[in-house]
Design a protein around this nucleic acid. Structure first.
Lengths: 241, 241
DNA sequence: ACTCAAGGGATTATCGATAAAATCGCGACC
DNA sequence: GGTCGCGATTTTATCGATAATCCCTTGAGT
């Protein structure tokens, strides 16, 4: 149940800032409010949701300032971890990088019906995790994973709104894999930074162009999310049905 | 209540690895098991406790491997943040560094009766937070804080077991403050790294010398913790009453 | 004497309900 | 016509109890 809710959040099913009411979630998953509450508590501690005292929980709001900061920190942390992986990674690490890259390469990005990407997403996460797993530092790895999860939220929106970065993703991953096997730290870090910053650049450009900045009420929600048929019931939108 | 439990954990009142039973905690704090459970969930997500499914919660176990890793990562992260603080910090940052250092300097480390240090601990945390607060990156700041909290657990034990680092703490903090005001990044990072690594070195030396490694049952618990009169009721100790 | 199995006790996880709090809507007042 | 205040409804936070799980002890069997 926790994993389900987490997947929903990461999948971008709920729009940012939307309130997460205990009753609707408990009926939705068929469990009591207690377990929903515990799940939300964990999610909030992870940063995927926010908890307002006496106000309940809501989906973590998105903003270009946060995305910008997140990306910058992510580049720094992942560069650190990648460099250490290149120095300290053993044979098992090399093997894992190769294996996860193969899986990622052979997993289709989108399904034939054009819907979302569930297997590819996990494969993508596994590949990037494997890249950094050689650093030999559990703490550093956890931090990197946590940051990546935070960025995942943005990546889903970037996916829906901009579409000019789909073509060379495979090439970027292949380059990262090759540089890892070659232990070319400098170029590896450079490639990883570019890989991380690319979608951020696109999304920020789109956001500033379309004027949806920090407190966009729902312009992102009018897109592919409406597909899920969830009625917008936020009190912030005066243009009710 | 959450803060109380968190302070107890950080204060080293419970010994590492000890089980945290819901009933005793709920009666201890005079609240229901639900709120204890929520607090433990949050603490577990923060890393201060560990959650075993169907087995409840327990105090985060300590090990030299974990401490070593934690210290290494902490040096890297804090160096990153400090360097950015030195570059980007504004007047407000300088002021905060100066102010928190003054408070820290004027707060006695131990009380006259020789007991623990509650005000000093918060002042210490505030000073280090202020040092890094100029980096202009909320995410990086959060990560650094989280790592510092994790290290706090070890620091308390280091305090009780080794005592050769009490004398020059004030000098180290003053040096850090001066270097911050001078914006001397290289020497600042060097001083901070030394400051972080010092107690770790001492504690690891003590641990390896006294043979209490990863799974020490309670040799650390026989120390100042027994002062709290809490009977050892772990099932792991066969020498029961 | 040791191993294995079943029973009893203790502890955790979940549930439904109650109490507290906040929000929203309606009406009175300025 | 606009604003403030009060009451009703929704929602959260807490509670006590039940059901499920695990650990330890006790006993028989080998």
């Amino acid at each position: 149940m926790f994993e389900e809710l987490r997947a929903d959040l990461l999948g971008g099913l709920m729009e940012p800032g939307q309130r997460l009411k205990l009753t609707v979630l408990s009926s939705r998953f068929g469990v009591s409010q207690s377990v929903v509450r515990e799940a939300l508590t964990r999610l909030a501690e992870q940063g995927l949701a926010v908890s307002s005292p006496q106000r309940g929980f809501s989906v973590r709001p998105l903003s270009v300032a946060d995305l910008s900061d997140l990306t910058r920190v992510r580049v720094q942390i992942e560069s650190l971890a990648l460099r250490q992986s290149f120095e300290l990674g053993d044979l098992a690490w090399e093997t894992q990088v190769l294996a996860t890259h193969h899986t990622l390469q052979r997993t289709p990005v989108t399904r034939p019906d054009g819907s979302v990407h569930d297997a590819w997403s996990t494969a993508h996460r596994e590949f990037h995790r494997a890249l950094l797993a050689g650093c030999g530092s559990p703490h550093l790895e956890n931090i990197a994973t946590s940051l990546r999860d935070g960025a995942e939220l943005y990546r889903r929106w970037s996916w829906m709104l901009t579409d000019d970065h789909l073509r060379d993703l495979a090439a970027e991953h292949r380059l990262l894999k090759d540089l890892a096997l070659d232990r070319d730290a400098d170029r590896g870090v450079e490639a990883l930074a570019e890989h991380i910053e690319r979608s951020t650049r696109d999304l920020i450009a789109y956001a500033t162009e379309h004027g949806l900045d920090s407190d966009s009420p729902d312009p992102v929600g009018t897109g592919p999310v409406a597909r899920h048929g969830r009625p917008r019931e936020e009190p912030g939108s005066p243009s009710s049905a």
